[in-house]
Design a binder for these strands. Structure first.
Lengths: 228, 228
DNA sequence: TTGTGATCATACTACCGAGTATGTTGTCAA
DNA sequence: TTGACAACATACTCGGTAGTATGATCACAA
């Protein structure tokens, strides 16, 4: 009954220091989430056993199951973390009062940077989508996944918002806003499928990817062409 | 030694009739491939057991293992079939002597139609990419997967070819041809992630998707904008 | 008619991994 | 100092599934 899985730990209030920040959140779960993200990214959901995650932590199953009721819930938490990263990046930008075209540009750049920066989490998000397309066995898990997908749709909605605003002002052009947002995000997400971290400071290489794919995304919905 | 797994069956020369055509190829494997494609699409690779595939065939494991040495090889064959469908559709178009812009348009439309028409196979192709990103355990399987990825790259190369040709003529604009082809295909593949077959004649709905996403793809690399 | 091989079905093994049950240690509070 | 509980580690169960071994039919060929 008195189970850490349900108690929202207080992290000993006042001990904000020592937070390596690499994986924030409530200490305890944080390290597990980070390790799981790496494992899921490298081997995929099914091929990753709880023992694998534990090994990476230098621990055993006991530690993981102390915080998570099941493997699926651990996965969900990693997914949520990934979406949280994305949402916390984009939402402030949407609130700015930039012109639609510039606002979308900033959003696109930020999104691609997130893809490259937090690769493991983003790959987990992709796996979550695949998992949803497939039938995650139990109905209970389907509901959970459905909730996560709502988060994703909400994220997509932020882009749709700016797109529609831009269309009204004549800077964008498309017939179906939902399709447009999907197309834009499809481009921006693409690097997740092939990007790999390099040694040294490949900052310039990353920025090239950011600029290039942002350019494609903006072009795809730009007004002035003769399509749609 | 005398194993059906290695002998290229002759299909009893002269018996070309009775080919339901729904799943061509050498009779025997054909039905298995089709059933496997459906299963993989509905439940994903790991969640699909050989027994699941056999059940759908109204048969047992014995039949599947008679033609395939392992579950992985069955998957590879489904993947190959999917890529074969795509290649056989696009290659003739590339050989035509259309102007780059029109040629690309035709290619895009054909590609999206394939996505919608052969959904199960295309989803398997996507899973193959994910599988390659993850680490398919044994080195032997990694090699096999690497070969399949070469096929995919070759397919992408067909698009790259037309894109470069168009850039030389000034109708397309981009700095990195590889990135451009990835962006275009990212858009065109997107419907696979959410499209579902409907009842009745949804031909018009499908064609709307085809036209819309083709439009986005063409726009993304169109010359005339101020990006890149 | 016999035997040979293709085409399956049946029955079995072997293992891996999710989940559980329980033990151990440290810490804090009263 | 002594419970009480958090935070793990250890040891086990148990179901599902890939792969195998073997048996049963059937067609066709000699």
């Amino acid at each position: 009954m008195s189970d850490a899985r349900s108690t929202s730990r207080s992290t000993r209030s006042g001990d904000m220091a020592g937070q390596m920040a690499q994986a924030a959140g409530d200490s305890g779960r944080g390290a597990i989430i980070a390790a799981a993200a790496d494992c899921f990214m490298e081997a995929g959901y099914d091929a990753t056993s709880i023992d694998t995650v534990a090994d990476r932590l230098g621990a055993t199953k006991g530690r993981v199951y102390h915080y998570y009721r099941s493997k699926a819930e651990l996965f969900y938490d990693v997914y949520r973390r990934g979406m949280a990263i994305n949402l916390s990046t984009i939402e402030p930008i949407v609130k700015n009062d930039l012109a639609p075209r510039e606002k979308l540009a900033v959003m696109c750049r930020a999104h691609v940077r997130n893809m490259l920066e937090h690769l493991s989490y983003q790959r987990v998000v992709m796996q979550g989508v695949e998992m949803h397309l497939a039938g995650s066995t139990t109905p209970a898990q389907r509901e959970k996944l459905a909730l996560l997908m709502k988060e994703r749709e909400r994220y997509e909605g932020l882009f749709r918002l700016v797109l529609v605003e831009g269309r009204d002002q004549g800077v964008f052009h498309f017939s179906n806003a939902s399709f447009a947002s999907k197309a834009v995000l499809a481009i921006l997400n693409n690097p997740v499928l092939w990007y790999r971290r390099r040694r040294g400071d490949e900052k310039t290489a990353r920025e090239e990817i950011v600029e290039t794919f942002t350019g494609f995304a903006l072009n795809s919905v730009a007004a002035g062409a003769n399509s749609n």
